[in-house]
């Protein structure tokens, strides 16, 4: 009955363009593994992993979503009730950063109000070697400053990671965990508010903050 560390369940959703490495980040975090050719995620994959931060244990319930554009209309089903989100982009693909911007906006407008979002620029391994040098032909197409400034603007956590080398991967989940309020009451309240009819609920969370949706 009285376990020393009752794990706090935290629902976390991964969003981002196709092939930026969402599933790979999860695989690295959950199994400390990496696969070069991962099958595309159909709809969403579900995985769990515990993570201890100080005296707290968090049980991440991870919803890893499909990245292809058209699956975006399914996303509200997945980020419903999520307390945390990783918005992932590929630092070598500028388009994926634009997509990340959209996801952040979508989450701010439609997801739970107090959702913790981390912006994650993945595939750091591809630019690692030429960091420091001012090489023109660097693979990096999204600068760390751009990422930081979007994060500051939208109040997000920010990391650059490599699922391949595992650089910074655990830090993302630890960072998110430390920001999640420990009170499980908020989560319970959240859950209740969404259990209504329309189970395939595309309109996302109930807290419609559409009014704040000014273009940046």
């Amino acid at each position: 009955m009285s376990l020393p560390n009752p794990a706090t369940p935290v629902k976390l959703v991964l969003l981002g363009e196709a092939a930026v490495g969402k599933s790979s980040l999860v695989l690295r975090f959950v199994s400390n593994d990496f696969q070069e050719n991962k099958e595309p995620t159909i709809g969403a994959a579900f995985l769990t992993q515990k993570c201890t931060i100080g005296d707290r244990t968090i049980k991440y319930e991870i919803w890893d979503t499909a990245g292809q554009e058209r699956f975006a209309s399914l996303a509200p089903m997945y980020y419903r009730n999520a307390q945390a989100a990783l918005v992932v982009y590929d630092i070598t693909k500028p388009a994926s950063f634009i997509k990340a911007r959209h996801w952040v906006k979508e989450l701010h407008e439609q997801a739970s109000k107090d959702i913790t979002i981390a912006l994650v620029g993945n595939k750091y391994d591809l630019v690692e070697s030429d960091e420091g040098g001012e090489e023109e032909d660097s693979l990096r197409k999204v600068s760390i400053e751009e990422g930081k400034s979007l994060a500051a603007e939208e109040n997000l956590l920010f990391f650059e990671t490599s699922a391949k080398t595992s650089y910074n991967v655990n830090d993302v989940f630890i960072g998110i965990g430390s920001k999640i309020p420990s009170a499980s009451s908020t989560e319970a309240a959240n859950q209740q508010s969404h259990v209504s009819e329309g189970r395939v609920d595309l309109s996302g969370g109930v807290n419609n903050r559409g009014q704040d949706a000014c273009p940046c």
């Binding site: 975006a72 309109s203 273009p215």
Partner: peptide
């Protein structure tokens, strides 16, 4: 309805910046 709302939301968000209100 839901799809239309979603599509609309996405498309409005992707529009270039103008002086128009939401």
């Amino acid at each position: 309805q839901n799809i239309s709302t979603f599509v609309k939301r996405t498309e409005l968000r992707n529009l270039p910046k103008t002086a128009f209100t939401q």
